[in-house]
Nucleic acid binder design. Structure first.
Lengths: 198, 198, 198, 198
DNA sequence: ACGTGCGGGACGGCCCGTTGAT
DNA sequence: ATCAACGGGCCGTCCCGCACGT
C-alpha cells in the first residue's frame, strides 16, 4: 500500500507531467505546479528537493505512460508485423489526441533539454535507448521467425521507423496539420508490408 | 549601405540567434543577449520592441542561414538526384557541426513554441512550409525530367525525406551519437538511388 | 486575534500609507515600501497583488485614520456647534502636525488620481462622499434641534465648510505658512457662530 | 520676432504643459513629451537641461495662461464687484472645460510638489502669492472706492475666496460632479453681494 | 511525519532620464 | 541637431527555506 507521502508525490508528478510536457522546463513555474496540485507553497518541498527533481520524475512518468500505452497495444498482436502496425495505429492522429498533453515527451524533452539541462537530457537519452531497443526487439523477432527478410539491418530499420514518427509529430504539430503525420504513418505501413516482409 | 542602426540590429540578431536556438525562448534572458552583444540594458530596446521581436528575427535569421547554406549546395548540382544527395551530405555530422549553434532551428523552434508561443509557432510553420516546398520542387523536377519514377507521390516523398532528417537530428543529439543521424542519411541515400530513380 | 499574515498586511499598510500620502502614487516605488517595512520582495507580494492594491489599502487606512481622529473629537461634543468647532480645532496647525505625514489624504489622493488612476479616484470619491455626509449630518441635526437657522442649505453649507478647509490646507502647505489655514479656520468659526446659529 | 530656437522651446512648453498638469510630475515621462511634440530626443535637450526645467516652464506657462484668461475677464469689469463676479463666472463648469487640460495648475502642482519637488513647490508658492495678491488688490480697491464695507479684512477675504474655489475644484473633479463647484460659486456670489457690499 | 504559509532575495523583462558621437 | 547607446531603476515573478501546526 502507498503511504500518504507516496500518494502525494505521485499526485504531484501526475499533475506536473502534462505541464512540463506542454510548456517545457524553463517555462514551467512552481506556481503552475502549485496551482495544478492544489498544494500550498511549501508542500511540494516535502516531497521533492526542487523543480529539477519534479521535472525528472514528470518526464519519467510521461515516458512510462507512453511505453505502457504502446506495450498494451503491442501485446495484443502475436506477429511482428502486427506489432509494428499496432504502433503505427497508436500514433494515428497523435497530435490531436496524444497520450499526454503536449505530445511525445521524448521529442519534447530531448529538444528542450539537449543543450541546457543535462539531468533531463540524460533521462531522455535513456528513454530513447529503451524505445529503440523495443523496436529492435520486435523487428529482430520478426526476422528470426521468418516474417521479415533476413537481410534487414535491424538497428537501422528501428531507427528509421522511429525517426519518421517523431519527425512527423513535429511537422504535424507545428503546422496544425495532423494529416502530415498520418500520411507518413501510412507510408511506413506500406514500407512494413512491402519492404520488410518476405 | 547599411545604416548604423541596421548594423546594430543585425548584430543583435546574429548574436541572439544561437542563444535562442540553444536554450529556447523561455530560458533565454535579455541578460544573455546583452552579454553576447556587448550592449547595455537600454541599447537593445532602441532596435527592438522586446524579447519577442528579437526571438522572431533570430529565428528567421537562423532559418535563412540554413536555407542559404542548403541552397548553395543544391545549386551546384544539376540533377535532382544530385540535389537530394547534396542535402543529405549537408546534414552529415550535423549534430557535431550544425550550421548554427543548437542545431536545426526548425526542429528546435517548432518543439519549443508549438504549445506556448504562438508568434514563434507561426513563423516556424511558415518555415516548414517553405522547406517542404523546396524539397517537393526538387523531386517534382526529377520526375518531370525523367530522373525519377512517374509514380512517385511527390508530396509524401518530400515529407518523408525531411521527417527522417529531423527525427534523426533529435535522436543523434539527445544521445550524443552523431552516427545515428549519419546512418539514417545513408539509408535515405540508398532510398533515393534504389527507390526513386527509374 | 490577528493571524500573522494579517499583521504583516497591516504593517505594510501602515508603513506605506505615509509614503503614498507624501510622494503620490507614481513617485512611490516598491523599493520605498520595502525599505519602510523591512520586508523583502517576496514578503510584500505574499500579502498584496501589487502596488495598486497597496495604494488602495494605504489610502483607505489613511482616510480612516482621519475619520477616526475626527470622530473622537466630534463625539465629545454634545451640540452641533460644538462638533463643528471641534473639527475646526482639529485642523488648527494641520499642515504642521497632520494626522498622517503628507497631510490630508483626501486632498492628496484626489488631486493625484483624478486624471490618471481610476481605482484610486474611485476610492477618493467615495471617501469624499462619506466626509461630506458626516458634515451634513451634523449640520442637519443642528437645524433640527434648533441650534441652527431653519433656512440653512445643509448640503451647501457642508460643502462650503470642507472646501475652505481643503483649499486652506493646500495654500498653507505650498506656501509654508500654516497661518493661512488657521486664519481661514478662524473665519469659519465666526461663520458658524454668526451665520449658522439662530 | 522669435528665433527658431525660441519657437521650438515655446512649442515644447505648450505641448508639455497639459501633460504635466494632467499626470503630475513623476508620472509624466520624457517619452510622453517627445510624442506630443513630435521632436527627437536630442531636440528636447537642446532647448532644456532636463525634465525638471521643462516642468518648471510648463507650470509657469500653465499658470500664466490662467492669469491671462482671468485678467482679460477682470479688465472688462469696471467695478470690484464686477471683477469678483467675473472670476466666479470664469470658474463656472471649470472641471468640464478648464483653461488647460487637467484643471487648475496651482492646485495640481501645489499638491503634487509640496512634499517632494522643491523647485516646483517654490514656483507654485510664488504663483499662489501672485494670485492672492491680485484678489486682494481687487477687494482693496473695492473698499477704497466705497463699494465694499470698510471693516473687511481684505487679506482674509481674498484667501477665503480662493480657498473655496480650489476646494471646490478638487471636490467637483474627484467626484465627477461639476455642480459641486458651481454650487459653491453661487454661494460665493451671494457672499459678495450680501456680505461684502455696503 | 506531513503539510501549511510566511518570508527571502535574486532575477525576470522593460522603461527611465540622460549623454556622446557623428 | 540627430539618434544610437547608456546604466540604473521600475514592478513583478522566480525558486526556495523555515517555523509552525497537526
Amino acid at each position: 500500500m502507498l503511504t500518504k507521502a507516496a500518494k502525494t508525490k505521485q499526485h504531484i508528478i501526475e499533475m506536473a507531467a502534462p505541464i512540463f510536457n506542454t510548456k517545457g522546463y524553463a517555462a514551467t513555474s512552481m506556481a503552475d505546479i502549485l496551482q495544478a496540485t492544489g498544494l500550498a507553497k511549501g508542500g511540494i518541498y516535502g516531497s521533492f528537493a526542487g523543480k529539477d527533481e519534479i521535472a525528472v520524475h514528470a518526464f519519467e512518468y510521461a515516458f512510462e505512460s507512453l511505453v505502457n500505452a504502446l506495450r498494451s497495444k503491442i501485446k495484443q498482436q502475436p506477429t511482428a508485423t502486427g506489432k509494428l502496425l499496432a504502433i503505427l495505429k497508436f500514433y494515428h492522429n497523435y497530435t490531436i489526441k496524444p497520450h499526454i498533453e503536449g505530445g511525445c515527451p521524448l521529442l519534447n524533452t530531448s529538444v528542450d533539454a539537449d543543450d541546457n539541462i543535462p539531468f533531463l537530457k540524460q533521462r531522455a537519452a535513456a528513454a530513447l535507448q529503451l524505445m529503440l531497443g523495443s523496436l529492435r526487439n520486435i523487428i529482430k523477432k520478426g526476422v528470426e521467425n521468418g516474417e521479415f527478410k533476413k537481410t534487414l539491418d535491424v538497428k537501422k530499420e528501428a531507427a528509421f521507423f522511429f525517426a519518421v514518427i517523431e519527425g512527423g509529430i513535429m511537422m504535424a504539430k507545428v503546422s496544425d496539420q495532423p494529416a502530415r503525420l498520418n500520411s507518413l504513418l501510412t507510408g511506413l505501413k506500406q514500407h512494413v508490408v512491402n519492404n520488410l516482409k518476405k
